[in-house]
C-alpha cells in the first residue's frame, strides 16, 4: 500500500475494501455464492417439491440474500468502522426503495379493491 492515491486511512469507498479486502479469493467466493443462490432461486421457482404459496417469499428472500452477497463480495460494502458513511447512504437508499415499492403496492392494491367493490355494487343495482 505504498500508492499515495490509495492510502487514505480512516475512510473507504465502495469497491475498494479495507486492507486489501478486494482479493481474487473474495471475488471467486462471491461468484460461487451468487451462482449458488441464483441456482436455488431458479430451482425453487421450477420445482413442485416446495409448498406453492411459500415460493414467492422464498424467491424474494433468495434475491435479497444474493444482493447482500454482491454488496459484500463485489462492492465491498461491509459493516467495518471505516465504511459507516457508505452503509448509512445504503440504508437511506434502501428505505426510499422500500417506501416506493411497498407503498405503491399497498395503495394501488387498496384502490383496485375499492374499484372492484364499486363495480360489484353497481352490478347489483336494479
Amino acid at each position: 500500500m505504498s500508492d499515495p492515491y490509495k492510502k487514505d486511512s480512516g475512510d473507504t469507498v465502495p469497491g475498494e475494501g479495507e486492507d486489501g479486502a478486494a482479493s481474487l479469493r473474495g471475488y471467486t467466493l462471491g461468484l460461487a455464492l451468487a451462482l449458488l443462490l441464483t441456482g436455488a432461486s431458479f430451482w425453487v421457482a421450477s420445482t413442485n417439491l416446495v409448498w406453492a404459496p411459500s415460493v414467492p417469499v422464498a424467491i424474494v428472500v433468495l434475491a435479497v440474500a444474493q444482493m447482500g452477497v454482491h454488496l459484500v463480495f463485489f462492492l465491498h460494502v461491509t459493516t467495518g468502522p471505516d465504511n459507516t458513511n457508505n452503509v448509512l447512504a445504503l440504508a437511506f437508499g434502501t428505505l426510499v426503495v422500500l417506501l416506493v415499492i411497498v407503498g405503491s403496492i399497498w395503495i394501488m392494491g387498496h384502490l383496485s379493491h375499492g374499484m372492484a367493490m364499486d363495480h360489484a355494487a353497481m352490478g347489483n343495482m336494479p
Binding site: Y5, D11, A89
Partner: peptide, 15 residues
C-alpha cells in the same frame, strides 16, 4: 482524498 470523494459521490449516484 479525491479518490474517496469521487467514489463516495458515485456511490450516492448509484443509490
Amino acid at each position: 482524498s479525491k479518490r474517496i470523494v469521487v467514489g463516495y459521490g458515485f456511490w450516492i449516484y448509484l443509490l
